[in-house]
Design a protein around this nucleic acid. Structure first.
Length: 221
DNA sequence: TAGGCCATCTGGTCCT
DNA sequence: AGGACCAGATGGCCTA
């Protein structure tokens, strides 16, 4: 088990089995309904009996009501706890799914071998820029192919193929990229001290052109 | 040690 | 009613 997982696991355990005793309801019971008037005028004994009886049954009823109230409150609290635990579980799963999706995204992005795993925000920003670069690439490819078709695929093909033909997007050592270039893409705007926006623009334009030529001409080789 | 990143919990809101 | 989504709070870990 990786440290991360272990850490996560211990976290989960900590949260899953957190002490909920403070959630116990210690509030006073709701006041019971007032005693009904009892007795008849003619018979004291009977009245006493009735009174005694009514008091006893009354207290019994009160006790019964209290018990059922306590039972109800306990079940409500249990129900609430249960719902909360379920919701936490779903939320945890949801975040795990989100992280899986982010991992999937990281896996399709070009990676720089020595670099640490991209943070979430870096992944999103890099993906955004990468998609932009790819779309620029496609546009340029269309444009260049059109020009080449018009010129009979002579000069421009040679020039372009010399510079960028063998570029591999995944290779940071290629002529079109350097570690700092990749870094600049990884780097979120908030940490722009590492690389200027100009660096990023340069990199994107370079990688766009290289991509254009490698992808577009590969079928001609 | 401060700051960044992350996982998780939690309560609120919206949707089905 | 229950689930999905969201944002805020909290606390742990790591690094400069």
């Amino acid at each position: 088990m990786s440290p991360k997982t272990e850490k996560s696991h211990s976290r989960s355990e900590r949260y899953l089995y957190y002490d909920v005793s403070d959630e116990e309801d210690h509030s006073p019971l709701l006041p019971c309904s007032p005693a009904p008037s009892a007795g008849s005028e003619g018979c004291v004994v009977a009245e006493k009996f009735l009174l005694t009886d009514s008091r006893e049954s009354q207290s019994k009823r009160q006790k019964g009501r209290r018990r059922s109230q306590v039972k109800n409150e306990v079940t409500i609290i249990k129900q609430k706890k249960n719902r909360r635990v379920k919701a936490n579980d779903r939320e945890r799963n949801r975040m795990h799914n989100l992280n899986s999706a982010l991992d999937a995204l990281r896996s399709v992005l070009p990676s720089f071998p020595d670099d640490a795993k991209l943070t979430k925000i870096e992944t999103l920003r890099f993906a955004h820029n990468y998609i932009w670069a790819l779309s620029e690439t496609l546009q340029m490819a269309d444009h260049n192919l059109f020009n080449m078709a018009q010129q009979g695929m002579t000069d421009s093909f040679e020039k372009l193929s010399k510079t960028c033909l063998m570029v591999d997007l995944n290779s940071p050592n290629s002529s079109c990229s350097s570690s700092s270039d990749w870094d600049s893409l990884y780097s979120p705007g908030s940490q722009s001290s590492r690389h200027s926006p100009k660096d990023m623009d340069n990199f994107i334009s370079q990688s766009s052109s290289c991509l254009t030529y490698t992808d577009s001409f590969s079928e001609f080789i």
